[in-house]
Design a protein around this nucleic acid. Structure first.
Lengths: 339, 339
DNA sequence: CAGTCTACGTAGAACGTTATACGCGCTGCA
DNA sequence: TGCAGCGCGTATAACGTTCTACGTAGACTG
């Protein structure tokens, strides 16, 4: 922290290491990639020089020929409560294989996602892991053509060029709705996304699951959706409308805790008793749902496990697998006061 | 999406573009970097070819000589409620300058942070933006020696080699505590981090601010800290102890909403009335604090603004500035039911 | 003992940019 | 007329890896 002089010692390159160890550059490279044809003696010499010189290979240079040992992770939106646990799983699994994850945040906009993916490709990342991308199926396929890719939170069970790992949203929704039906409720309604966003197929799956449960219980005629209007979860009057409607149902299943938490708060503000007058189940099992003052029942998607599986799938794809894998993880119901 | 054949057309390189436009490779490079010595005619020709061939320069290759137009952003921990708004600001500002952000998640562990920063350096990113890093001051300085760097959420006002942008935590804490004092409370206590974590100096600053307010009110002898034990915000009995203590104070200032939300929930569970029997102010103004059922007063750090300023600082550093800048943003008090 | 195989190691071209150094044709001025 | 200066464009050497192709020595085979 002196004046300014402290000139940084030039960074060691593979050549420096080779010279120091008294071997060829190619030999060092082989050791780095633990490629075939390296004797123990040589490996040791090289390792020693590497440590001595504090050498780290330049990912940028690597990108020009071989692997970067880095994968790009595209996140929809930092506020998404599903993310942290997924990323935990991803990092753990990648870390074991000595891979690093570098992430971009798409702000839930296809344009931004597109440009972020381009950046990742331009950096020559070895693979892509997309979490709940907004991009359409064939756009995704186009990218998958160029490099290994795994998608989370986007149902595309017939995709041939990439893998998917998802919570079984249809089944999860059905489980949630059945829990409400078991309590004796008949008019179970669902709060869902706007139509165009439900095309974000995770939410469509949850709608199917809701339908499944209702139909199976012989309540097909009681099916009813309350659709939020805003793009993303901004309070927009839908929930107020539901609460004030003469048709207010005794039980509601919500596409996400985001809506369910708003619902439970606004119900309390109106003096509506939960769960006696209004039973609620949300989705995602956010930390907020677990607060005693909220006590919201919800569906746990097992994010960590999803992250681990997705990362493992990506690694095996990087190693050459090309036959697609599509996994569905069964979510778990967490019952709390609201049901 | 056919069988597998669909061989991807080889990606266009700067050479392809040069050939197509009938100019030299160097000319194309100049256009890309809008460097000196390009006529309008030449620029047009090149631009046209670039679009026609859908050419994008390889960041990896760029990294070997010049800039990558990418900055690395290191995040402490995805669950940190302060992050989303900061990143919004960062992305907006970087985007305008045609820079991209790629992020790493340090999981609040210095080891991981270190290795992530190394990765970013290895990728030849043009600069580093660290958000609430756990790394020590001189470790930070060491990195700053190698490339432009800006730090958020870590007070280091005398650092010579990098910039900092922070919320004025000391002042914010003082404002919060004064709001409690104004209500007539004398015994205002503070829930804080464990000692070693308070060395995470953001929290130490908040402790100073608490002290400042108490001392200024002539209540130095009433100062009292309740320190949580766990590394990060896991409920650990501290809050239960406070609530059951015979010395239970009438007002509490919390180092973060994380603690405050736990406090307000546990108080409710014990039938303690907030704010009559217990007034509370948290920090961070998380979405949870704003829920009607919670109604927690809190300090807004103006994260978006911090993100914008930090990104702007980083860009100007990349452009060559070397004299350090240390900015403090005044946070705002958000009063809700809990006070 | 010639020939083949295996294990280990090396030389050097490539990867796709940037940046330096230079060339060439015009202008303008003494 | 000579030549400095400027504006525009080009040739080419880096940058730090990987990877293919090849050489060599010793072990094994028939």
């Amino acid at each position: 922290m002196s004046k300014s002089g402290t000139t940084t010692p030039a960074r060691a390159t593979i050549r420096t290491v080779a010279a120091d160890a008294g071997v060829s550059v190619a030999a060092v490279s082989k050791v780095l990639r633990n490629a075939y044809g390296v004797s123990d003696g040589l490996r040791d010499k090289v390792q020693k020089s590497i440590e001595k010189l504090d050498y780290r290979p330049s990912t940028a240079a690597r990108g020009m020929r071989g692997r970067t040992y880095t994968v790009g992770v595209l996140l929809v939106e930092l506020r998404n409560p599903f993310l942290p646990s997924v990323i935990d799983g991803v990092q753990r699994t990648l870390g074991k294989a000595n891979y690093k994850a570098l992430m971009g945040v798409g702000e839930a906009r296809a344009k931004i996602e597109q440009s972020l993916i381009d950046s990742m490709v331009d950096m020559r990342m070895d693979g892509l892991l997309l979490v709940a991308p907004r991009l359409s199926g064939d756009r995704l396929a186009r990218h998958a053509q160029r490099l290994p890719m795994v998608v989370i939170g986007h149902h595309e069970p017939t995709a041939a060029l990439f893998d998917t790992v998802n919570s079984d949203d249809r089944r999860g929704a059905r489980i949630a709705v059945e829990a409400l039906l078991t309590r004796g409720h008949k008019d179970v309604h669902m709060i869902s996304m706007p139509e165009e966003n439900a095309a974000q197929n995770v939410y469509r799956e949850r709608e199917y699951g809701y339908r499944d449960a209702m139909v199976a219980a012989g309540l097909a005629d009681r099916i009813r959706f309350w659709r939020q209007k805003e793009r993303f979860a901004q309070p927009d009057g839908t929930i107020d409308a539901l609460l004030e409607s003469p048709d207010r149902p005794p039980a509601v299943f919500c596409w996400s805790d985001i809506a369910a938490v708003e619902l439970i708060n606004k119900a309390a503000a109106r003096g509506i008793n939960v769960p006696e007058d209004l039973a609620i189940i949300g989705y995602d099992d956010t930390p907020t749902a677990a607060l005693p003052l909220i006590g919201l029942s919800s569906m746990d998607q097992h994010g960590t496990q999803i992250g681990e599986l997705a990362a493992a799938a990506l690694l095996s794809r990087i190693e050459g697998r090309t036959v697609p894998e599509h996994r569905l993880i069964e979510p778990g119901l967490i019952l709390r006061r609201s049901t």
